[in-house]
Amino acid sequence: MMEKSSDERLMKQLAAGEMKAASLLYDRHHRHVYNYFVRMTRDSDASRDLTQNVFLKVIRYANSWRDDKVFLPWLFRIARNIMVDHFRGAQRFYQLEDEPEIILRDKEDAVRSSELNEAVGFLMEAMAKLPPGYRELIELNRFQGFSYKEIALTTDSSENTVRVRTFRAIQKLKEIYAQMIVD
C-alpha cells in the first residue's frame, strides 16, 4: 500500500510547482475549514467563498513554505486572517444574529435524533452568544481537535494562555447553554 504523504510533504511538493498536491490538501481539509467558517460566522454562503479563498491562498503562499512549519496551524492562520478581513469592513462579525442555513451531518447514524438536533440548535445559538475569541477557542479545541500547542501556534499566543482561556470559554458556553435550556 502506498504511504500517505504528510500535509507538510504535500506543501513541499506544491512549493515545487506540483499542483496535484493542492488538490490533495483541499480534499483532506476543506471540510474542516468550511465547518470552522460556518460555526464562526453562521453564514454558509460566505463560508463557502471564504473556504475557497483559503485554499487559493495556500497555493499563492506555497513559495513561502518552510520546512519547519506545521501545516494545520498555518492553514488556520490563513483562515482566521481571511475571516477577519471579510468582516472588518462592515464590522459584521460581532453583530451576526441570523439563523444559520446549514445542513448538519451526523458523525454516526445512531446519534441522529430530534432531541439531539434540538440540543445542537441550542448549542449553536449559545456559541453565537460567546465572544468571538472564545468561540474560536471552542471551535479549534473541541471541534477541530487542535491541541493547546497547535492553537497557540495558530493564534500567536502562548500555550498556557490558551489553556486558561479555553477553560473559561468552555465554562462560559456551558453557562449560556444551561441558561437557554432553563429559559
Binding site: 483541499y26 480534499d27 476543506h30 471540510r31 468550511y34 465547518n35 460556518v38 460555526r39 454558509s44 463557502r48 473556504t51 475557497q52 446549514i102 445542513i103 448538519l104 451531518r105 451526523d106 458523525k107 446519534v111 441522529r112 439531539l116 440540543a119 445542537v120 448549542l123 471552542i138 473541541r142 471541534f143 468552555i170 458556553l173 456551558k174 447553554y177
Partner: peptide
C-alpha cells in the same frame, strides 16, 4: 457531560459542488 455532548455535534455538510 458537556464535553461529551460537544463531541456529538454533527459536522456541517459541505455543499456538493464545492470541490
Amino acid at each position: 457531560g458537556f464535553l461529551s455532548f460537544l463531541g456529538k455535534v454533527p459536522e456541517v455538510e459541505v455543499p456538493a459542488d464545492m470541490a
